[in-house]
Design a protein around this nucleic acid. Sequence first.
DNA 1: TCCCTCTCTGCAATCGCTTGCATGCGGTAC
DNA 2: GTACCGCATGCAAGCGATTGCAGAGAGGGA
Lengths: 325, 325
Amino acid sequence: MKRATIYSIALACGVSASTVSRAFSRPHVVNADLRERIHAKARELGYQPNKAARGLVTGRTGMIGLLVPDITNPFFPPLVRAIQRAAAEVDSSVLLVDAEESPAAEPQLARRLAGQVDGLLIASPRSSTAIKEAVEGLPSVIINRRIRGAAAVICDNTRALQRAGRHLEELGHRRVALIRGPSASWAAQQRADAIHAWAAKSKTKLVDLGPYAASFDGGAGAAGALLGTKCTAVFAFDDLMACGVLAGLAEAGKTVPKDFSLIGCDDVLLARTVTPQLTTVAAPVRRLGEAAVELLQQALAGEPPQEIRLDGQLVLRASTGPASG
Amino acid sequence: MKRATIYSIALACGVSASTVSRAFSRPHVVNADLRERIHAKARELGYQPNKAARGLVTGRTGMIGLLVPDITNPFFPPLVRAIQRAAAEVDSSVLLVDAEESPAAEPQLARRLAGQVDGLLIASPRSSTAIKEAVEGLPSVIINRRIRGAAAVICDNTRALQRAGRHLEELGHRRVALIRGPSASWAAQQRADAIHAWAAKSKTKLVDLGPYAASFDGGAGAAGALLGTKCTAVFAFDDLMACGVLAGLAEAGKTVPKDFSLIGCDDVLLARTVTPQLTTVAAPVRRLGEAAVELLQQALAGEPPQEIRLDGQLVLRASTGPASG
DNA sequence: TCCCTCTCTGCAATCGCTTGCATGCGGTAC
DNA sequence: GTACCGCATGCAAGCGATTGCAGAGAGGGA
């Protein structure tokens, strides 16, 4: 049998289709008894409103697009979950698109998405200008990057990283390396700045290495460069790279935290599955997702773009310890 | 300005809306010159067909739903990517829904999805019957579980696991443990069966442990049980658990592969980021996704449900070695 | 010249829902 | 009793696309 429509329900209840429609979209305007009868019949017939039809007249699809640069990167799945949960809260579904690690593909994907969603959430875009003009006119929120004139929710790790620096200092480290992420990454820049700021006003010497690819192999490669620096502690751009560093160090016969203290960033699953577990800066992923959806709702309502910043939080685990020698 | 429609294009080109529509949906029936003019104008006006309107008349939304039990589990992101890529190939978008590890939520989510997609892809559902009746009538494909009468694409690790067994045997292992996954998991059952089948016809003694939760902590917990068994090698249900076992073993002062050889399953990112890298059975994720989409297209076309099985493949890495003692 | 065919285009109905407006009703105020 | 008000409901016009059918015009055959 075909799917139930407001007409079949109307017929079955002896009312007009508009009344059925109103029974769902503006329940308070229809008589309570009747409304109840309509709802009951709808349930009985397994009625599901046709979103396409509704979207056609209201101009709202009830979907929000989510563009992530690389769903395979462990940072994103929890974010996707958070966003989806928050979206469900406002009766929206999430259309996920993965750029498959190709920055160049992002604007095009964003544009394609634009046709079928009410608004767009763009996580960690690599290129700001291309993205910006691609979504021109479409309510959207950028996650983890700042773009002039666009709503954004960003995770600010400045304070947490500086706390991490002090933590290292207290452990007696005096030479610390920074393994930079990709130069096109806004987050990499932000984190590097924070660490430099800390180093500048501490008595610690900072050795700036990189940029390296933000991958396990990138980190493993960086481990070699680290060996010659006489550093006793390392900031890695993120946890994935930190794991690479860990492996590279192990290969070279060095152990963490005995020979090197190691600090990651993001607190992804990996940070807890490696041995030793990583000291890292956790991102408030859940709130990040909620804030993004909230900002998008505001944008949808025509309010001017805002920016929300959320602080990361240092979590101490087993990869940091007293400076050796 | 408002979005361009077929009408604005029609007006600008001095033709009727139907012609514009046809210029896109059945290009060969309209005069080549005219078609070109229409396309050019459409490009100029930034025309994007309104999917809702099209969906209303064709009954197709151009979207396929993808229900995953836990997007946070590293097995799924690459699968999501593969599916999405395959979906794009057939001009469809993916509506992702994450059950957040709650099996009970699956049927309800599937039902909600049902209203707005052409078909449904359900990855590793925990409960088969509930799911099945939830999607009654909606074309759908199950991934990694067999359900009577439903189309399915499953990853068959039987042969690869048996090869893994022989690999262990060749390394001199004579007592091997199996750390089982959750009893409700179809994959856990399938893998356990395969390993038992191998053990039965080899000269190896198999010790069956579990079931344990399919998580890092589950694996870590299982490591304790392992210690008393006098086994020299272990099959873990999946890589995530294997990482847990690795960590638990390390805590107990045991090292891999010196004291224990360890084999995981799935070949997720984690398998390569731990030290030592895990010997594991790789799932053909990419083909899995393609096959799922392909099967869904068949279901959409009204063809009877099929089943596709794809073989996993043993990949040898550093977590297996000669039996100790 | 007439008729038939074939190609291309337009007309108008339709998909399922929302919503502004008109209508009918009972109740209240005068 | 009349006038008015407000509530609940129905009518009908769209939203933007697709598509069956019909008509216009060009070309070919007799």
